[in-house]
Structure formats: structure tokens, C-alpha cells
Design a protein around this nucleic acid. Structure first.
Length: 744
DNA sequence: TCAGCGCATGTTTTT
DNA sequence: CATGCGCTGA
């Protein structure tokens, strides 16, 4: 491998292949580069078989990127390398070897909604008032216990002193999960650990297979994930973890920076390497990020530096409301695009998904294409969930959550009472609910009234089961299923809305068909497809090569970078969130989140506050985020309405309206006229004198083809013209490069 | 008594 | 989007 493009520290990280290695990698310090070069080095230079490498990430996106970049580096297919998320890794192991601890191969992965509905049901059965204990709260406590302790039951028995009955809920929930042949996200990790502990030969099999383990985003690992890694490394110490304590933003999910701090205890004689040179952002952006994170006490401390130059000032736009905010974003994007930037170089980040709606509709009205990552998306559409629930039930008949969802969809006269009766009946007989329907003998024991209502569904279910037997293709089966259950007619009853839903169903069919043709003989297509949908987010379905603006939460932006980043909602109680301002630890996490957001930007950063916004259909006056004040004034310019002095007492939203709109600081703006149009690698500080070539012109070059002029520096024949071609940006001397102006 | 419908409500962040 | 509530009709 040619490692000459790496800096000294990066090369050390790549070449220290034996023993435990902890890399503390600041934002933009080339972390992914180090990971991919290291894998490439192992395979190419040391002859390690790809099958012996395990690389664990937290998102599918990160896993896919790592695989692709590694493959490109060594110019070889690495499909059989295990690069995946912690959760898919565990799901895979449990499907292969889970039977040893009595886990059925066809288990279903329950998402948060499935989990909560099951907990609600368990609480109903235990006669626990849902008003006294919210099911989400119960779910969170159970999840915390599973994420922090190897013996969650013990932990919950203790917790029940404060929260009555939580231990009983847990026990019943576990039982219901087992009956449903289902695992939740926490179970995937926990059960894999239990498998490894109770079956040492299986643990050892994987330890022998994975001669090298790499872990990305180590600061996001929780106690159990670290335990899992330790189990995989009892004899072999080749473990390489990369993390950044300043980017730890998942402690609410049980992640703990302790894993980084205690790495040397968990894996003795570890080598620690710090990557502090930032290759992504301008110095201005780094300074802003540093000045924010400096306010945190609980950190190791890092010294990020760059030689990319100062760059443009950060723009703080103070909007009158969320529509003004969205308009500003849209206009700025348009201006950048007219100056030659690509849509895909822009990202709009926000704290909560609910903020995306106004931004989406505004971008649409401007005709700006975008992709929303995460949030309410395709897989969360009711109609898609319905069909997936049917498929789940066929693959795993014990899946209660799926049965609950579809037993009366389309409506067939089976209401809550009938379902409750069915459930109680199954409970007393000690069989899964579906067996009551499927087994004629048990079915005939039901009260006649219930039989009458349930019979058509029982018959439908049997028909689906035999249909599945004679239709091996997942795609064909799903098509037939839609006919059999009368889903098309059901959609018609929704009128125009039904048309839209039909399109989504069509999209689902396409996805299944595509998935099916892409997998080889890895297993049953339908089972694997369902696993994929359970562990995937919509970010995975979006094509990153499309030239579209990216919209996502700050959390899902981690690991990504964009030339131009907007952070919307820099308002107190939104960011930092109202739920975090009381607790210093949570506030520090919000601050790290802000640090993550800012360091996504390479060149341009726009922070947007609004004096008033309507969120959750509730209008409210906002104060700008405290984080805005943590960025020193000399790094930013202000635009939009004039923010009042942000003192806590004198604040009044009405004054702000009265003070008139859009009194922006013209004088400061005019110092930097090129601010919106500039694009890397041109620095805006350059005095700009135009020649014949003008910014925005389309020109043709003999070798590079057609491109758009992004900047012109100098005059006449001596001018340097920056042209963005399809896949590269070139700086060309106007006198030599024969640039032909292309008419529109 | 139960099913089904319309309407109001509440939603941090995510594998 | 899911959940809860009140109303209507069988």
C-alpha cells in the first residue's frame, strides 16, 4: 500500500497492526481514511484474508462507506469481509448460532413501536394504569437496564423500589418477547453476549475467525458493546478502536465515554494515537467549534489545527420565524448553485425531525430537490408497515406485534374486545395467538360469537401460509399476498390518498424485488429482507450520488461532511433542547452535538435562529441559543432582523417585531460581497477582478469537457479561472487554457 | 356490547 | 404517525 498520502500519526495508526490500539481522532482528522487504509494494509500488504477482518460501525451508512472505500483502495471485491453495525453483526451471529440458547432462526427484530405496543399490552394484562406509568418510560427503563447490566432483571428488581411494578413488567415483557419469537435492539447485543458466555466453543470460533477487529465511533459504545468486544478478544489482542470523546452524543442510549477512558484497562498495553490535524474545515469553523466545546468540563481536551486557511465568516441569520428561516436557506442555496455549487454539497441540519417540515415545503416551492435522512419516511408509512407486518407474520407466526397490527386491516369486524379475548385464550392455553386461529381443535373452543368474527381471518391466514409454500420468490409472494388480503380495494376506500399509498406499496414491491435479485444464497430472501428493514433507516435507501440537498438531524449527520452546512433552530429550548437545560451532563451532550454539527462544514457555515416559531402546532417566542454566544463575535457576521440584547429579563418578542425587519448590518456584509458565491478551493478574501470570463458562465475545455466558472481571479490573459467540471474542479490560466464560452 | 369513524393530541436525538 | 375519546350504528 502506498501510505505516502497519510500524515505521520495516521501512518502509525495504520501500521500498528498488532495489539490494542486506541485512536483519538478529532473531527475531520481523517478517521475513515485511517480505518480504510488500515484494512487495505492488512489485506494487501500482510496477506490477511478479508474474512478475518471484522469492522464494526453504528450506522449502515458508515459500514457501506467503509466497505466501498476499502474496496476501491485495494481494487478488489471485499464482499465477504464483515463490515457492519453492531446490531447487524449480532443479528447475524444469532441467526447462525442462536439456537444454542434457544433462539429461533426466524426471530423478528422489534423496533421501538413494536416494543412499546407490547409493553402497553403487558401493562394492560398486569392491570397497571397506563396513566400512572407511561409505556415509553417503562420501555426506557427496561432498555437502560438491558444496556447497562448483564443481568437486567436484578437491576430492575432494584429499580422497582422507585418505580412500582417495573420488575413485573420486565418479566412479562421478556416472556411476551420470547412467545413472539422476537428480539429488540438491546436483545441483539445482550443475547449475543449470553451466547458467547454460555457456549465458549462458539465464542472461540468467532475469535479465531476475526484476527483483526476494528471499531468506529468507539465513544458511542455502551457497556454491553464493550463487553462483547472483550469476549471476542480473550486471546487475540488485535483490536483497533477509533473515537472522539467530544463527539459522544449517544449517552442517552447508554453509550459511555468510559469505554475510551478505560480502554487501557480493558485491553492492557494499548497504544494510544492522537489525530489532531483537521483536513476538513476552515480555521474559522474550527475556532468556532473549539470555542463552543471549551465550555465543557468533562473532556480529555484536544488541539485541533488546520492549514486550510481562515476562510469565510460564519453567518448568523436571525430570522423572524421558521418560514423566514426556511426561505433564507432556500435563497442561499439557490445563490450558491447559481455560482456553480452543487446541491449535494449542502446540508440542512436540525435538532428534531419535526423541524424538517417547513424546510421541506419551502425547498419544494423553490424547486430545490432534497433528500430527508431519517424521520418519518418510507418504512414508517402506515401502508408499508401493514404489508411488512403481514410478511413478518408469515415468516414468524409467533410475531404478536405483527398480528395485532394486521388482524383487522383491512377492517374485518375484529375489534379490541375480540383481540383481547383471543389473547387471553391463547394465554390460558399456553400457545401463541396464531395457533388458536390455525389449529381447528383449539379454534372450536372459542365462544361462538368470537369464532364467527375470527373465522374469515383464520381462513385467510391459512391461505397465506399455503400461498407462501408454493411461492418461493419473496416478490411474487408479496404480490399475491396483496391480492389475497384485498389490500388494493382497501386502498381505494381512501380516495386520492389511496393513490399515494398505492405508489408506496409499489415502491415496496420494487424494493423487495431489487433486494431479492441482489442477494445470492445467503438465506431466505424474505427473512433477510425483513431483517434489513428492521435494522435499516431510510438513509440507506437514499442514493448519495444524487445531486440533492441533504436534510437530517444533527445526530444523523455525524461522520458526514459538506461544503456548506446550515444549522436551523439555534434557539434556546430547541438546541439545546428544553429537556437538557436543567442537567449539566445533558447540556454538555447538547454542546457536543453542536460541536458535531459545526465540524460537518468544510467552508460555509450558516447558523439560524428565529425569534418566533410554531412547533408542534404551538407558537412560541424563542431566545437565541446560548451556543450562539459561545462563538466569539469576530468569527461571525449577523444578518436578518436585529436581535435584541439577549438579556433574560428584557426579552420581549413583540419588541422585536416593532423594531422593524431586516435591518441587517449592511456595512459588514459589503466587506464580503462574494460570501455566497465562493466555493472551494477559492478563498473569498482574494480581491476579485473580472476578465472576459464571468462567474456562472458555462465553458468548454478540450480535455475536461463542459464546466461552470466558479471564480475569476486576476484580469485578462493572466486571470486564473476556477471551473467546476462534472467530477473535478480545475484552476486554469485564462491565457493558456482554451476555454470556449458555451451559450445557454 | 362492540366496531368503526372522525377529531384532537402529542412528538429529542436512533440502532 | 399513533393514541385516546366520544359518538353512531348494528
Amino acid at each position: 500500500m502506498d501510505l505516502s498520502s497519510l500524515n505521520e500519526k495516521q501512518r502509525l495508526a495504520v501500521e500498528t497492526t498488532e495489539g490494542p490500539v486506541l485512536v483519538l481522532a478529532g473531527a475531520g482528522s481523517g478517521k475513515t481514511r485511517v480505518l480504510t487504509y488500515r484494512i487495505a494494509h492488512l489485506i494487501r500488504d500482510l496477506g490477511v484474508h478479508p474474512y478475518s477482518v471484522l469492522a464494526l460501525t453504528f450506522t449502515n451508512k458508515a459500514a457501506r462507506e467503509m466497505r466501498e472505500r476499502t474496496s476501491a483502495l485495494i481494487n478488489r471485491n471485499v464482499d465477504n469481509m464483515w463490515v457492519m453495525t453492531f446490531h447487524s453483526f449480532c443479528a447475524r451471529i444469532l441467526r447462525i448460532d442462536g439456537q444454542v440458547i434457544d433462539i429461533d432462526r426466524n426471530f423478528t427484530i422489534y423496533d421501538e413501536t413494536d416494543k412499546k405496543s407490547l409493553i402497553a399490552e403487558v401493562m394492560r394484562r398486569l392491570n397497571i394504569d397506563s396513566k400512572k406509568l407511561d409505556k415509553s418510560v417503562a420501555a426506557k427503563i427496561i432498555s437502560d437496564a438491558k444496556n447497562r447490566y448483564l443481568d437486567p432483571e436484578e437491576a430492575l428488581i432494584q429499580a422497582s423500589e422507585q418505580i412500582a411494578h417495573i420488575d413485573e413488567i420486565y418479566v412479562e415483557y421478556e416472556k411476551a418477547m420470547r412467545d413472539s419469537n422476537a428480539l429488540d435492539f438491546d436483545d441483539l447485543i445482550l443475547k449475543t453476549i449470553l451466547l458467547f458466555k454460555s457456549a465458549p466453543h462458539i465464542r472461540s470460533k468467532y475469535e479465531v475467525q476475526f484476527k483483526y477487529i476494528l471499531v468506529d465511533e468507539y465513544q458511542d459504545t455502551n457497556a454491553l458493546q464493550s463487553e462483547l468486544l472483550k469476549l471476542l478478544r480473550i486471546n487475540n489482542k488485535n483490536i483497533f478502536v477509533v473515537g472522539d470523546d467530544d463527539q459522544s452524543i449517544y449517552s442517552w442510549r447508554g453509550a459511555t465515554v468510559r469505554n475510551i477512558l478505560d480502554f487501557d484497562e480493558d485491553f492492557p498495553n494499548a497504544t494510544t494515537i492522537r489525530l489532531e490535524q483537521n483536513y476538513r474545515s476552515t480555521n474559522t469553523i474550527l475556532k468556532a467549534a473549539n470555542s463552543i466545546i471549551m465550555n465543557n468540563c468533562d473532556r480529555k481536551g484536544k488541539n485541533l489545527w488546520t492549514h486550510l486557511g481562515e476562510g469565510d465568516s460564519i453567518v448568523h441569520y436571525y430570522a423572524s420565524n421558521e418560514f423566514d428561516e426556511a426561505n433564507f436557506i432556500a435563497k442561499t442555496i439557490m445563490r450558491n448553485v447559481n455560482a456553480g455549487a452543487k446541491l449535494k454539497e449542502h446540508a440542512v441540519l436540525y435538532r428534531i425531525n419535526a423541524q424538517s417540515r417547513v424546510i421541506e415545503s419551502t425547498l419544494t416551492s423553490y424547486g430545490i430537490p432534497y433528500n430527508v435522512y431519517g424521520g418519518l419516511k418510507f418504512l414508517e408509512r402506515a401502508e408499508v408497515k401493514d404489508i411488512i407486518a403481514y410478511l413478518r407474520l408469515i415468516v414468524n407466526p409467533a410475531d404478536r406485534s405483527a398480528l395485532y397490527r394486521i388482524i383487522n386491516v383491512p377492517a374485518r369486524g375484529i375489534g379490541d374486545k375480540t383481540v383481547e379475548l383471543l389473547d387471553n385464550f391463547a394465554y390460558e392455553y399456553g400457545v401463541p395467538m396464531i395457533d388458536v386461529l390455525d389449529d381447528g381443535d383449539i379454534f372450536s373452543e372459542l365462544p361462538t360469537a368470537a369464532q364467527k368474527k375470527l373465522y374469515p381471518f383464520a381462513a385467510l391466514y391459512k391461505e397465506l401460509v399455503s400461498l407462501r409454500k408454493e411461492t418461493p420468490s419473496a416478490y411474487q409472494f408479496t404480490k399475491k399476498l396483496l391480492d389475497t388480503i384485498g389490500y388494493y380495494d382497501y386502498l381505494k376506500s381512501f380516495g386520492d390518498e389511496g393513490e399515494r399509498r398505492l405508489e408506496n406499496i409499489q415502491e415496496l414491491l420494487n424494493a423487495i424485488s431489487e433486494f431479492e435479485s441482489n442477494i445470492g444464497d445467503e438465506g431466505d430472501a424474505l427473512t433477510l429482507f425483513l431483517e434489513n428493514t428492521a435494522l435499516a433507516t431510510d438513509a440507506d435507501t437514499a442514493d448519495p450520488n444524487q445531486d440533492k440537498v441533504s436534510l437530517m438531524t444533527l445526530h444523523s449527520a455525524k461522520g458526514l461532511e459538506f461544503f456548506c452546512v446550515f444549522i436551523a433552530g439555534m434557539d434556546e429550548d430547541i438546541f439545546p433542547s428544553s429537556r437538557s437545560t436543567e442537567d449539566p451532563d445533558r447540556l454538555e451532550e447538547e454542546r457536543r452535538l453542536c460541536y458535531v454539527g459545526i465540524t460537518r462544514a468544510k467552508k460555509k457555515l450558516y447558523l439560524i435562529s428565529a425569534s418566533e416559531r410554531r412547533l408542534y402546532n404551538y407558537p412560541k417566542v424563542y431566545r437565541q441559543s446560548r451556543f450562539m454566544q459561545e462563538i466569539p463575535d469576530f468569527l461571525k457576521v449577523c444578518e436578518g432582523i436585529t436581535p435584541l440584547n439577549i438579556s433574560f429579563q428584557s426579552y420581549s418578542g413583540y419588541d422585536r417585531y416593532a423594531s422593524g425587519s431586516f435591518t441587517s448590518r449592511q456595512s459588514r456584509q459589503s466587506l464580503n460581497t462574494n460570501r455566497f458565491a465562493s466555493k472551494p478551493p477559492v478563498k473569498v478574501e482574494h480581491p476579485k477582478v473580472e476578465s472576459n470570463y464571468k462567474v456562472g458562465m458555462r465553458v468548454k475545455h478540450d480535455k475536461f469537457g463542459i464546466g461552470v466558472i466558479e471564480a475569476v481571479v486576476g484580469e485578462g490573459g493572466g486571470a486564473i479561472v476556477t471551473v467546476r467540471f462534472d467530477d473535478s474542479t480545475k484552476r486554469l490560466a485564462a491565457g493558456y487554457a482554451k476555454l470556449e464560452i458555451v451559450k445557454e
